[in-house]
Every structure is written in structure tokens, then in C-alpha cells.
Design a binder for these strands. Structure first.
Lengths: 332, 332
DNA sequence: CTGAAAGCGCTAACAC
DNA sequence: GTGTTAGCGCTTTCAG
């Protein structure tokens, strides 16, 4: 079985304390001889210190918890990759969990993370009410929020510039001559970023006296999303050629699948644009005009802020925006 | 700060042992009164047991380590999602790490996982030589391998039916009338699954006397992959219209980006097909014929086998294949 | 420069 | 039914 610090100490003829100093790099006042002897024994035994034990005393598990709304999402992957970029430098590991788009499940996994004694948490929150997360502050665990707001703001929040990116895209749509706009989204009341994306369109539409219709669906996979709502709208408005804006990549994909099935083409039959963090939209049809929010960068920034807090110098609880970028293509 | 089992014990006027029994569900011989009292105190204090401490004695951290070759990959996301489906049921958590396609880095993170005392590991291995992983068996940690072989086979290995799927696809290509086949891949010697995918084509090509050219590139992102090799081939073979097969989704995307930039169309100028685990290929061009290896299922199966081992009844070290499926579309 | 000893929060015999 | 006690493997004063 795994050797312990005691095994190392005995084989090297020193005390556990000395080995511990060695492991933690406190060679300042240690004879080179002892150091080398310990090094040899560690290598020979293949000793790997047990972090569970060390955490008990040192109060540092070197674990960072990450909770995303839905694991099977490109956004999540890229976010996690960004976080990993910085935890790696710190020699830490990430504990990932998916909330399955469910508040109760999110709460459950947060408790698991607390139980594991994570040094900090990065959360894409299900709830807009930050009081829901009081228990993690009570546990004394630093947390930073990503992608969505949770208010009153108690944590640094890193998100993309949803509202302004959305406005810019809406202006583009209108400039392209569309007289009808459809926003295809998951329920916007529930999540601040969705709401901001919708509001960007709604506000610009109002400025230009262009009607903006909100079509809400539950489920965001191609299979679950109820894309036929768009078909219903089309039937109800014969002769109209609207621009459809989808608030996330899965919905964009769902909409495009549906169009393909219906034999609808863009921009001939309708315009389409939406969020896409993975650039595949460039390849669909004539190329879909889309917004990229750079989740990897969001992950990096979030992790950097988290470490500030973990190291005792938390930044003020403000919203940090990573600019989303617009890729103009030929679907409008 | 976080309350401990001692705090709970004192407030509830019982011993730590009783609280511990409560926490672990040993109510068999416990008065309902004490049980309820403890429950109340636990809720009131917001007590969450410290798993680090419990692990020290119980030898179970409830942590499953997952090491993938590259975190920023759809395959990884879906694999992790599948693993999470089953660890969640067990009340466990997953510790994910990316090896950055580098053997040394993989070794480093494996050591970190061992240090964290994970109950088991799921690995998409960088090395085909299983001796590289002797140190994990020495540490007594159960492991299952996914996606690629590492031999001599010491661990259950869950992968997709690479060779047969690849043969089927090759037959399809040839039946479509192509007289030249190009396999665009990352170095095939290094990874068994790539090799199997290549061999499937090579063998079928030989059977039909159709030349199969292997074009190898390093880096698999659209930016890094050297797609111009295909262009060079085209230049060297004027008048030919080959079918290109890419051995993973990133390379498929890279090839399609390049074709788009070159103004090349499929199937007009060349045929194209490849691996795609996320169905976006359905939307590209006329729809790209592709192979889906169902990574989520692979993850689930792998986790199930891992738990068998963790629970003391390891399955024999065989290769388990999850059938890959072929989506015929219009790119050939 | 190194060692002894106490203890982190929890579990698991073994008592009673 | 419940309490006592002895650690799990490590870190960290405090001595020397």
C-alpha cells in the first residue's frame, strides 16, 4: 500500500518533522546531506504525500470546486479549460460538478464541495438571489460567480458583455432590413444573462419601432427545444421574413436542425443569428452570424479573482465583463 | 468557521461517536429521540462533515479522478458527462485533469490525483505502454482506460469500435466511386485509436486496390493543423477528386475551415468524412458523413467498471467496445 | 539543523 | 443505545 511520511522518516533515519519540512520546501536550515537522503528515499519508495492528511492541519486542500449549470455544454468545457489553465499553475486540481439546470441539485453539489473542503468555488449560478448561497459564505469558502448575476452582489462576477453585444447584433439585424425579430430563448426571467440578451434586442427594436417577439422554450438540446414555435409564428405571419436570434449555442443548433428538416434556408426564408462559442456556426449554411463570448477567458479571469480571495485579499464584489465578439457572416 | 462533529455532539448532548453513526446512517440501534435531536442540531448549525478527515480513517475519499488527453475537446466533455452520470448516483465527485497531450504532464497530474487519494481513476492514456502506469497500480488505485489501448492490457479498457467503424466508412467511400483516399490524422503511431482508424481505411483500400495516402499533422485545432498538406496533394494530382477522412472532430473542422477558405466544395471538389461526436457536421455544407462514437456512453460504462473495481470485484482486463455509428449524409 | 509531541475532524472497535 | 478511546497521515510549535 502507499508509503506514509513515517515510512520515509524511518528509512531515511530522520523524524517525520524533517521529512515534512523537506516536502514543503523548507530547506533553509537543512543539511544538504539530509535533504539528499530524503530525496533518495522518497524516490525509491515512490512516496506521494497524502493531501487529505495534510489538509486537515494546513487548512488547504488544493482543490477548487467548479459548478456549471450543465456539464454537456461547450460553454462549460471552455470555461473549465480556462479555469484549469490557472489552477494548474498553482498546482491545484479542479472538482467539477454539473447542476443539471436544477437549483436543488446545485445545492446538493455545493454541499458536497464544501464537504470536500475546497479552497474556493467558481459557480455559474442557478439562482439570481444570492441569499441562496449564504451557506457557502458561512462555511468561509471564497466564491466567484460566472456568466450570470446573483444579487445583491456578494461575489466578484465575471461574465460577457451580454447587453451591449446583444444591442450591437440587433442593430446589425435591423440595418440588414429585417422588419420582424424573433428571440428564441429559454425562459428569460430565470437567468440574468438570457434577460440581458433579450433586453438588448427588445430595447433596440423599440428604438427603431421594430417588433421583437420573445419565444420561450424549455430544454435546450436539439431534441428538447420546441423549435416549432418559430414555425407557428411563420404560419401566423404569411409573407413575413423575420430574423431569428437564439440566446445560446444549443438553441442555435436546434433551430438550424429544424430549418434543415423543414427545408428552410437562410437568409432566403429567414435570417438567423445567435450565440456560438465554438465557431462551428461558421460552417453551417452560408455561415451564421454569431456572438462568441470567449468562455475560456472568462474561466481564467474568474480563477484569478478566486485566487485573490483564497490568498486573503478578495477584490470588491463587482461585475467584470469580458467583451463578446461578433462574427459577421451571411445568414442575415 | 465550519462547525465540526464535536460542536454537533456538544450542542446535542451526545458523543461524537453517536453523531458519526447518525451521519453514516447507522440508526439501527439509536433512539428516535437522539436521531431527531442530532438532525435538528445538524440543520441548525449547517454542519457539513469534513470528508478529508473521514477519508483518513475510512480510506474512501469519494473522489474519482478523470484524466483526458485534452480538456478542450467535445469528446472530453461528453466523456466526463457520462462519468458524472454514474458518480453522481454514488454520491461521489470527479476530479478532472487534462494532460495537454503530453506524457510528462499526464504523469504529473496522475501523481496529484494519487496525492488526493482518489478512490479510482479513469484515464485516456497518452502512452501505449501500460508499464508507464505501474505507479498507479503500486499505489493500489483502481483504474480503467478509455478510448485508447495501453498494452500489455492491465486494465479494463472501454473504447469505440474504431476499426470496424472505420472499415464500414471506407467501404462506403469506395462504393461512392472514389479512386483516391486521403487519411488526415495526427501521428498514428502514437495512439492506438488513430492507428485503428487508419488501418480500417488502409486495409479496405488494399482489398479494393484503391490507394490510401496518410497525411499526418501535429496539432489538431483549426489554427494548428497543417491542412495545406491536402492542398499540396491536390496540386500534385491534378484532375483527381479524392475522399478525405479525418480521424477526429477537430481535424474535420480544420479541414472544412480550410476548404471554405479555399473555396472548395464538397462533394464537388472532393469528398469528406470523419469523426464528429457532437452532430454539428450535419449542418456543415451539404451535411458531412460522419462517425459518432458516443463518448457519453463510453464514460458511463467506464465508470461502471471502475466502481466494480473500487468495490473489490474488478472485472478482467479486457477491451470493451461501444459501437460507433455512421451517419450517412451528402459529402461523398 | 533536527526531534518530540500535540492535534486537525472523523471513524471504529470495544466497553458499558 | 451510547460513550471512550485510539488512531488515520500530516503540520507545526517548541525544545534542544
Amino acid at each position: 500500500m502507499r508509503p506514509t511520511i513515517d515510512d520515509v522518516a524511518k528509512t531515511a533515519n530522520v523524524s517525520k518533522a524533517t521529512v515534512s519540512r523537506y516536502l514543503n520546501g523548507h530547506f533553509e536550515r537543512m543539511s544538504a546531506a539530509t535533504r539528499d537522503r530524503i530525496a533518495a528515499v522518497v524516490a525509491q519508495l515512490g512516496f506521494v504525500p497524502n493531501r487529505q492528511a495534510s489538509a486537515l492541519k494546513s487548512r488547504r486542500t488544493h482543490l477548487i470546486g467548479v459548478v456549471v449549470a450543465d456539464l454537456a455544454n461547450i460553454y462549460s468545457t471552455l470555461l473549465i479549460t480556462g479555469i484549469n489553465d490557472v489552477t494548474k499553475e498553482a498546482g491545484d486540481q479542479i472538482l467539477v460538478a454539473g447542476a443539471g439546470n436544477d437549483l436543488a441539485e446545485e445545492k446538493r453539489v455545493l454541499h458536497l464541495l464544501i464537504g470536500q473542503g475546497v479552497d474556493g468555488i467558481i459557480l455559474q449560478p442557478m439562482s439570481q438571489d444570492s441569499h441562496q448561497y449564504d451557506f457557502v459564505r458561512l462555511a468561509g469558502i471564497p466564491m466567484v460567480i460566472v456568466d450570470r448575476d446573483s444579487l445583491p452582489r456578494r461575489h466578484v462576477t465575471v461574465a460577457s458583455s451580454d447587453y451591449s453585444a446583444s444591442r450591437t447584433l440587433a442593430e446589425t439585424v435591423i440595418r440588414a432590413g429585417y422588419k420582424d425579430i424573433i428571440v428564441f430563448a429559454n425562459p428569460v426571467q430565470l437567468v440574468s444573462s438570457r434577460m440581458l440578451r433579450y433586453r438588448g434586442f427588445a430595447d433596440v427594436g423599440q428604438d427603431h419601432h421594430i417588433p421583437v417577439t420573445l419565444l420561450e422554450t424549455h430544454g435546450d438540446s436539439a431534441a428538447e427545444a420546441d423549435v416549432s414555435m418559430i414555425g407557428a409564428w411563420l404560419t401566423a405571419h404569411p409573407g413575413h421574413r423575420p430574423a431569428v436570434f437564439t440566446t445560446n449555442g444549443r438553441l442555435l443548433m436546434a433551430a438550424l436542425f429544424w430549418m434543415q428538416d423543414q427545408g428552410l434556408q437562410t437568409p432566403r426564408d429567414l435570417g438567423i443569428c445567435g450565440y456560438d462559442d465554438w465557431d462551428w456556426a461558421r460552417l453551417a449554411g452560408p455561415g451564421i452570424t454569431s456572438v462568441n463570448q470567449h468562455p475560456q477567458q472568462i474561466g481564467q479571469k474568474a480563477a484569478e479573482f478566486l485566487y485573490q480571495a483564497v490568498n486573503g485579499t478578495p477584490a470588491p464584489a463587482t461585475r467584470i465583463e469580458i467583451p463578446a465578439t461578433l462574427d459577421l457572416r451571411h445568414s442575415l
